[in-house]
Computed example of a mutant assay.
Amino acid sequence: MATTVFGEYREKVENEFSKLSKETLLKLQAMEDKIDSDNPELYSQALTTCRRLFEETAKMLFEKYFPEYKENTYKTRSGKEIDISKDHYKNKLSAVIEKLEDKSPSKTMVGSNVLYLIDWIDNLSDLQCKGVHHDVTRQDAVRCIIQTYICLGDILNLQDE
């Protein structure tokens, strides 16, 4: 049953991504290729690909929902100023999610889930970069891919609700 449910959700997410760019679809395929391998080095690359999907999605959606925005900071509903300049994709994604969630009170869970996942990916990557002997397991990579599909699907579905 879980396979069927996830398969349906995955198809819906990929249909939404197909509206964005060819590069995004190539990243989705690359994730699958890396996880199907028996090479443990490719598992950490799958995490990187997941992060890049979030970066690309943040950039595209920010340009879509804030086309004329030229400031380097964005003021959230709580009054906090966040940096949205250059590569601050988490903050850009936060601004987009906040804008989309404003349309319906039932959408407020999405932002928390997305930011949790991005932080989790960053923490695993940071451990590797700092020389801490932490190998990304296939289980880590699978979890990351599943959660990436869910979170990005939720973000893309916010647009349609």
Rank of each mutant, 00 (worst) to 15 (best):
M1G: 08
M1L: 02
A2N: 14
V5R: 11
V5H: 08
V5T: 13
F6D: 08
G7E: 15
G7H: 13
E8D: 12
E8A: 10
R10L: 07
E11Q: 12
E11N: 13
V13I: 13
V13W: 07
E14C: 04
E14Q: 10
N15C: 10
N15Y: 11
N15M: 11
F17D: 07
F17Q: 09
F17P: 00
S18R: 15
K19R: 08
K19V: 00
L20E: 09
S21P: 01
E23Q: 12
L25A: 14
L26C: 04
K27L: 14
L28V: 12
L28M: 11
Q29M: 11
A30Q: 09
M31S: 13
M31T: 04
E32C: 03
E32Y: 05
E32K: 06
D33C: 10
K34S: 14
D36Y: 05
D36R: 13
N39E: 14
P40M: 02
Y43E: 05
S44R: 10
Q45V: 06
Q45R: 11
Q45F: 13
T48F: 08
T49F: 11
R51P: 03
R52A: 12
L53G: 06
E55G: 03
E55R: 03
E56T: 10
E56W: 04
T57F: 03
A58G: 03
A58Y: 01
K59N: 03
K59P: 00
L61E: 05
Y65G: 00
P67S: 02
P67F: 02
Y69T: 02
E71Y: 12
N72A: 03
Y74A: 05
R77Q: 14
G79T: 02
G79Y: 03
G79W: 03
K80G: 01
E81D: 10
I82N: 07
D83M: 00
D83G: 01
S85I: 00
K86P: 00
K86N: 07
D87M: 00
D87T: 01
K90P: 01
K90V: 05
K90C: 07
S94N: 05
A95T: 05
V96Y: 01
I97F: 04
E98Y: 03
E98C: 03
K99T: 09
E101G: 05
D102T: 00
K103W: 01
S106V: 08
S106M: 11
V110K: 11
G111H: 09
V114D: 02
Y116G: 12
Y116L: 13
I118A: 04
I118R: 07
W120A: 11
W120E: 13
I121T: 02
D122S: 12
D122Y: 09
D122G: 06
N123W: 15
S125T: 09
Q128C: 08
K130M: 13
G131H: 15
H134R: 07
H134P: 01
D135Y: 00
V136S: 09
V136G: 06
T137M: 01
A141P: 02
C144T: 12
C144R: 04
I146K: 08
Q147E: 14
T148P: 04
I150P: 09
I150S: 15
I150L: 15
I150E: 15
L152I: 09
G153A: 10
D154P: 02
D154E: 10
L156D: 08
N157R: 07
Q159M: 04
D160C: 00
E161P: 00
E161K: 01
E161F: 00
